[in-house]
Design a binder for these strands. Structure first.
Ligand SMILES: [Mn+2]
Ligand SMILES: [Mn+2]
Ligand SMILES: [Zn+2]
Ligand SMILES: [Zn+2]
Lengths: 165, 165
DNA sequence: GTTTTATTGATAATAATTATCATTATCGGA
DNA sequence: TCCGATAATGATAATTATTATCAATAAAAC
């Protein structure tokens, strides 16, 4: 329950990797710290591009390799949505996501894990359940505002056209 | 709330398509009826293979084209899981899924849609929410049984090895 | 420092899906 | 019933995300 700083979390993560016999490299460290500090749930390619100026020769394969390794070490998680590419999340505490169906933005929201639904599935299907995933879809505040303004604009235009008669 | 038969549901679906100006073809009809009757949540490729003996010359592109079209007409839905291919579901009533992390099997389970979680997301994030997705992960009855048996077998083997000393 | 071997980076391979386009078949109307 | 406009099919190329391969490089234990 202690609220660690970014530096403390990074230190922890490095320790975890060392215990696993994983060597630390500049590329690996950059990917890890990028994921620990960002809130944007980036794709592999976005991470690749974000680090391109600091590591101009880094291969995209290195990004994928490290994401897989970090995931296996329990330091990041992979979020898989419909069509596009996987997204990665360095915030490992239990939380849910809302995603904007207009701009693709993904935001966290904190809500206690709904274990009851796992129990319910267990009861109804005979599965031994272990976890669940849940995302909410909607329109983010920025896109809502944009839509409102577009609607206003359309109304004004329609009115002006009407007055021309 | 009326419980339509398979034939009635098919008839309905065909009508829906006609209204949309969509022509009926043997391939399309086969894909549609396959999805309406199965409970297995097949991939595009599985549908393709299942119909291969009846339509040996059907292109895989035709399967994809039709799945997209049926989805847009609201007659089937697409389920996207982690890595692998999309799965398709012809059961359009609200329901949730459990999937087996061992064999990949997907089963339905009926539970009233948890609208409260959409409201909660709305309150916490300012999104205008519209829907959510939720799946439970676990081990299906068949795989549980297989695991139990494997464990028994291992125990017996260990005991026999012990007796040899 | 030397040595071991995990890691990197370049690139090829794979897999799912979409795009292209010439040929074919549906279906409303003559 | 036949016709014509055009939607749909099937073959195949293209695209995209991801994984595999492997020689060169660089951690880090000694
Ligand atoms: Mn998150
Ligand atoms: Mn289902
Ligand atoms: Zn948005
Ligand atoms: Zn199973």
């Amino acid at each position: 329950m202690t609220d660690l700083t970014l530096e403390e979390r990074l230190e922890e993560a490095v320790k975890t990797l060392k215990v696993r016999g994983v060597r630390m490299t500049p590329q690996r460290y950059a990917i890890l710290s990028y994921l620990l500090e960002t809130r944007s749930h980036p794709t592999a390619d976005e991470i690749y591009k974000a680090l391109a100026d600091r590591f101009p020769s880094m291969s995209v394969a290195t990004v994928y390799n490290n994401l897989k390794l970090l995931k296996e070490a329990g330091l990041v998680r992979e979020l898989t949505f419909g069509d596009q590419a996987s997204r990665f999340d360095g915030q490992m505490h239990d939380h849910y996501h809302v995603t904007c169906i207009v701009c693709g933005r993904i935001d966290d929201f904190e809500y206690p894990p709904m274990r009851f639904i796992e129990k319910e599935a267990e009861r109804l299907t005979g599965y031994a359940t272990a976890e669940h995933r849940m995302e909410v879809y909607g329109i983010c505040p920025a896109c809502r505002k944009a839509q409102e303004e577009a609607k206003q604009m359309a109304m004004v235009t329609a009115k002006a056209a009407g007055n021309e008669h």
